[in-house]
């Protein structure tokens, strides 16, 4: 018994070491280095700027900067818009496509396509649609006599333009999760509810939704983390503009790090962002536990 266990443990290690090494090189070491950087002044473009320890100065600068607060607000605003629409649309389409009808598998697969496209390409696709004057979207609007919408060049529209692109890409994710969750439910409670005479809507609301709620929470959680990191689409479509209308947290970190080359401030901002995500995770697991206790 003891012999087997030690041997197992050795084999265990042999399999584990490469994974740990990769994890260390690609995640842990960079993270430690970023942590180190966040307490330093480090300008990549300007070696003549002193590279010194600055204590909490980078963090203080970020947390007291109205710019950073603004990006947080924009980030959360986008998150609320995209998540709520993705939830409603994704669950709606998910319920429709969960019907066992002929051809539905094909429909589901087609609907998944946006999700499989790289976000940069998604950005470019929508750039063609939104492009001022020459974009397809305004062209189609002009066919029905609607005047051109300054999709990505207006401070009021830009955030919606980005939200629409993100919603287009990620609604299928929610849809797929919802359809899978619905498929995993046993059909009898529905039949019981039908016999009892509850309407489809009541059944959906009182039987389906509560049962797939844990899945929905997981989906929303994953989307929330992604929304928090949203970058590619914005980078392609607006680069944070016009003005600072679509300046999200990732853009802030990018600008600090790769426009101003203030790697220390960028690193500190990344850590603040990480902290927010951690709070988000904690909140999520709490609420997930709560919803699972009830089942």
């Amino acid at each position: 018994m003891a012999y087997g266990r030690t041997r197992n443990r050795k084999i265990f290690l042999i399999f584990l070491v490469p994974a740990i090494a990769v994890l260390f090189l690609t995640t842990i070491y960079p993270m430690i280095y970023a942590g180190y950087l966040s307490f330093r002044s480090y300008d990549l473009a300007k070696p003549f700027v002193p590279r010194v320890f600055v204590g909490w100065a980078n963090y203080r600068e970020i947390l007291t900067s109205s710019e950073f607060m603004h990006t947080l607000i924009v980030t959360f605003k986008l998150m609320v818009i995209t998540l709520s629409v993705q939830l409603v649309l994704g669950v709606g389409i998910g319920v429709l496509t969960a019907q066992r009808l002929p051809g539905m598998a094909l429909v589901r697969t087609l609907l998944l396509i946006p999700m499989m496209i790289s976000p940069v390409i998604v950005g470019l696709i929508w750039l063609f649609l939104y492009f001022p004057e020459l974009g397809y979207l305004n062209y189609f609007l002009s066919l029905v006599s609607i005047s051109a919408v300054p999709w990505i060049t207006s401070t009021t529209w830009a955030i919606w333009a980005i939200a629409i692109a993100d919603i287009w890409q990620w609604t299928p994710f929610v849809m797929m999760g919802t359809a899978a969750a619905i498929h995993s439910l046993s059909p009898e409670p529905y039949e019981a509810a039908m016999i009892d005479g509850n309407s489809r809507w009541q059944i959906f609301w009182h039987v389906t939704i509560p049962q797939i709620k844990p899945v929905l929470i997981s989906l929303m959680f994953l989307r929330a983390i992604d929304a928090f990191k949203l970058y590619d689409i914005i980078f392609v479509l607006t680069k944070g503009g016009p003005g600072d209308a679509t300046e999200v947290l990732s853009m802030f970190i990018y600008r600090q790090s790769f426009t101003f080359w203030r790697m220390g401030v960028g690193a500190a901002a990344s850590f603040v962002s990480l902290a927010i995500v951690v709070v988000l995770i904690t909140f999520f697991f709490k609420s997930l536990n709560r919803s699972q206790e009830r089942i």
């Binding site: 473009a45 003005g243 600072d244 209308a245 600008r255």
Partner: peptide
Amino acid sequence: FYADVEEVFGVALNKYMAGE
């Protein structure tokens, strides 16, 4: 520090022109 000037004034002026 030209890159800083370009970016900071770029955002600030764009914001003003946008009416923000």
